[in-house]
Design a protein around this nucleic acid. Sequence first.
RNA 1: GGGCGCUUAGCUCAGCUGGUUAGAGCGUCUGAUUUACAUUCAGAAGGUCACAGGUUCAAGUCCUGUAGCGCCCACCA
Length: 878
Amino acid sequence: MIDLPSRYNPKDTEDKWYSIWSDKGYFSAKVNPDKKPFSIVIPPPNVTGILHMGHALNNTIQDILVRYHRMIGEEALWMPGTDHAGIATQNVVEKSIAKGGLKRQDLGRDKFIERVWQWKELYGSTIIHQLKKLGASCDWQRTRFTMDDVYSKSVLEVFVRLYEKGLIYRGSYIINWCPRCQTALSDEEAPHHDLNGNLYHLKYPLKDSPNEFVIVATTRPETMLGDTAVAVNPKDKRYKLLIGKYLILPLVNREIKIISDPIVDMKFGTGAVKVTPAHDPNDYAMGKKHGLEFINVMTPDGRMNSLAGDYQDMDRFEAREVILEDLKVQGFLEKVQPHHLSAGHCYRCHTIIEPYLSKQWFVKMKPLAKPAIEAVKKGRIKFFPSRWTKVYLNWMENIQDWCISRQIWWGHRIPVYYCKHCEDVVMVSATKPEKCTKCGSCDIYQDEDVLDTWFSSWLWPFATFNWPKDSADLKYFYPTSALVTAPEIIFFWVARMIMAGFEFMGDIPFKDVYIHGTVRDIEGKKMSKSLGNIIDPLEIINEYGTDALRFSLISITSQGQDVYLSKERFEQGRNFANKIWNASRFILMNLDPAQIRVDLCQYSKNTELSLINRWILSRLYSTLKEVSGNLKAYRFNEAANLLYNFFWHEFCDWYLEMIKPEIHKPENQVVMYKVLEKYLRSIHPFMPFISEEIWQILPHEGESIMTSSYPHIQQQLIDKIAEEKMSFVFEIITSIRNMRQDLDIPVTTKINCVIATANKTHLELSSQLSPLIKNLARVEEISVEEKYVHLRSSITSLIKDTHVTVPLEGLIDIDIELTKINSRIIQTEKEIGNKKKMLSNMEFLKKAPDEIVENVKTRLAELTEALKKLKAVKDGLR
RNA sequence: GGGCGCUUAGCUCAGCUGGUUAGAGCGUCUGAUUUACAUUCAGAAGGUCACAGGUUCAAGUCCUGUAGCGCCCACCA
């Protein structure tokens, strides 16, 4: 017999099977016209990334989908890859060279980029290795990187096409500027967070009457150096007469005009607002409208520039303090009010964003958004859970132009060239032009900026198939089937991919979007390094195993709800893996391979099989049916929990216990083997390693469970009557166990039992299965009677229409028994009352579906019968 | 300011299209075991389904409102 350790040790199996699967090429998918394609593109993790629980959840879900679809006979492709993550990666490499005292400027652009590539070669595949530890069945040979040559070509092609279509333009606008990263950011990359700031009231004296002031309120007093007007609402009576007059800007002594604009909120602050067109989006708009001067007072690294006079070179926040002090000393600071505000923060380094006037490249989004909105509205793309549809549509309908240029070095350099001699020449081309299109000079240079990382990731569903090359792969696998991702990147990525899909492929990029929850710690905080609340998936894998990690994560992830984790949560998965291991071990210990070469189908149409076997097969297939329904609906936790309950509480707790005494009977051999073998296949997408390990030890056909087929649902083996019968038997057994426990009767004490029922089915069932009941309830003798007769010193419980009596001389406390039976009688009477009330309600009879009414009637009959029997039991007790 | 989610057992949460007696895991308590598994087995206790209205024959489930918690969006000087 096979000798297996009594504990499952994941370390013995995981790496072994992963490399076998990989070596045999099971992960790779090819165009196959005979099969339905199923494709998923991975949300490419950053090359700088290390696996966290969010990845673990995200990729486990994808792996379940891919493995499941592979097993149901589809050509399943999971396209992997990584994202160059411009700013993040540049930051990492800058930090690493900083250790040697170097800045990127010291190296120069080319040398620095070389260093980034070196870094990528060394560490860039860390995350890929970690995904492998997770069991991810990606087609690794296709692994893409957004900076690869081929991929880069797609990116540049897209830029050129959009430019030629007039959807890309360059211009000076107020953008989100990160003074630390020293680059522009898109609106999405500058999320707002609340700040506790102050509202400073500043006094600006009137030019003609220096003792009179207009008081303005501001949260960023340092920008006053760039003020070129003060604005009031035209309807504001307080300021009506002042419109058109001039003020003297304190500290700077510049004359600035009082203008009127309806955008000014009379109720906010003093109703007068300082206008700094180069440092605020609203002010910028007013500046354009009123023809104001744009004075930029800051440097790109967030310090005051030469236009800031005495404040030059001060950091913006330091300047704020000094300016306030100076204003105060000179009597221009009216008051300071605490004020809650929110400001944009760099999503990479969390520095407070400076709204900054600069020349950037933008994509016009409205035209791109149109078909992308339609597709979702028409249901061609579905969100799961559906509530995200609204979030998506709301954003898309209010979409703003996308700032795509970044002042960093790591990324796709903008394919725009200028002539040193002709200021007005802009050449947009995927390859460097030889000479100026105007003057013919060869003195041309490329735009210094690179593209937003997301400007490459939004092409992921087709650029990974080498678009714009027209390939068979692209035709076959595009549109992809599903996208699995987190809510944070709906705008960054999902929405933009949909737009790109339509613009460049003329079709949706994916059909379903499954948005899973965010992984949080047990207090609901997002897991992050800085909070130190990380649970490292690799640590869990190391301690409990990959399957345990995967299963635990999935079973607690209800659709789209955030996941709250503590380490203990993973014990459930570990215990379950061990349970599967041991049940299999038990079966293997008792399995005679010669006995199992029987086709189960031969049993399907007749009753040759025992009730117990029919029951477990029915339960297996009922479960599998529900599992596939739930998988199709992206209810992974439901599917996982169904599989869990079936295996543990039905197959192990009941079935194996029931057949134990006759385990070598041929039909039991066949059924226990078949159920286990099919079960392993059905759990494989969730727990790939342990299922393979055991499957390989079990008699099996085929090379690997990974390439085997998902069990077909044998509808003819689903037998609801058998299920009902068995649950009746289980109730009998439980009730006897209950009585024993209630009365503190040791297992060693022998008890007998009388089962009495007038119900023929139950009568037969009880006598037929009395050996089973004896065994599982530890009863010495069972007699099955048609009529209930009270026995002296006995206790009786009622299961449906059946009295189960245990005679217990000297062990019974009549009072306790009476109390119990009374409470049961009261409960039954109460329920009878409810049912009668329902049935006497004409509205109910008229409006409720027949089936429901029938159920109530049946239930009432049962209850009435039960009440009679309970009373008989009670009478007997006295 | 707008939107979304959550509030169900001591804890963490399931509960899909309203329809018998509201479930699980963990924890607690009681008991068990000479071999499949103590990462186990058998059992128990524990719920006004946040609150207030409403719709309905019927509400944990649908609607409205309130409160608390959390998240997202917004040109909140």
